[in-house]
Design a protein around this nucleic acid. Sequence first.
DNA 1: GACGTTATCTAACGATGCTAGCCTCTGTCC
DNA 2: GGACAGAGGCTAGCATCGTTAGATAACGTC
Lengths: 180, 180
Amino acid sequence: MSPRPAPDLDSRRDQVLRAARAVAESDGWSAVTMRRLAGELGVTQPVLYSAFAGRQALIDAVALRGFGDLAAALEAVDAAPLPRMRAYLDFAAAHPRVYEAMFSMPLGLPFAADDTPEPLRQAFSALHDAFPDADGTRAEVVWSALHGLATLDAGGRLRPAHTQARLDLAHRLLTEQETS
Amino acid sequence: MSPRPAPDLDSRRDQVLRAARAVAESDGWSAVTMRRLAGELGVTQPVLYSAFAGRQALIDAVALRGFGDLAAALEAVDAAPLPRMRAYLDFAAAHPRVYEAMFSMPLGLPFAADDTPEPLRQAFSALHDAFPDADGTRAEVVWSALHGLATLDAGGRLRPAHTQARLDLAHRLLTEQETS
DNA sequence: GACGTTATCTAACGATGCTAGCCTCTGTCC
DNA sequence: GGACAGAGGCTAGCATCGTTAGATAACGTC
């Protein structure tokens, strides 16, 4: 085996995180066990605990990186309603398990509190930029609608053939004038 | 112990289901273990398997009853947008763990397929009645928005003080004229 | 009163997250 | 050049989970 090459905590954390993401995307989060990840990386379970405090901390890390990726995906397109909506839904569809970790699994991350991690704040800002208003209520509603579309679609709750029609309708409704 | 009183499978299923719902609402789904439920009911674990094929089937049953309750809650109010939106969000807020089982946990239930269980169809119809359109796309978008609002709010992702403002804005946006 | 049926309990299996303790290797200092 | 300290990894194990097989005891019937 590896004699004693390079611990390098950061790169190890990255390896574990990538392995977790890969297993989750292919076989679901229930398959993401510490033993499976250890086997995938060619080490034993206890080694993983030097990178993450536990399974929950690992999932939190995957989710946090997911928020960073989502923010990047949103910022990569024009700060207009339709492009950002499409980017959001594309991200959720492309990485359903990561999206699940971000929103549908119990996390230890704070959200609307003052100590909200930066990637979360950044992702929300990217939405707010495309749907500006005074206090962010509009962005929250937009976010909710997108999240609902993404989640229900991914869960097979909506008719798959109508994905585009739903996006078009949602776009039209959400960009109506706010005539108080 | 009970000598051989009354098996009565239906009532036992009901007992187990209620216990599961109660434990889930108080301590979360991770606390809903077969041993915990058995202890709660004064029986042993294997007895539960005479009522449900396994833990997953039990969760499915809780979710299915939840859809029935949601449909009833929606039908109990006027078939108008705002009352039904409020009823939906109230249900999700009142039974967060049941709602979680219905939408955020892996279920074995079919959804948009032809064999969709009746309670699901009924709940969706109650939304469609309040947001009628030709092919149901509008109702799906409304449903998505409500689901997003309910989920993100329950998960602490949104500012708690603005719940009412979000509902008002969502209502205004979703009831705009559909000028094609 | 004896019997078969049936519901129940006891006990166990495999798998999980996580941890304690030993062992091996690396790098350093004399 | 060689011994030592320390860091990192591995083996083995604990408690808990879902689930199941086999033994046990109570009921209704004849």
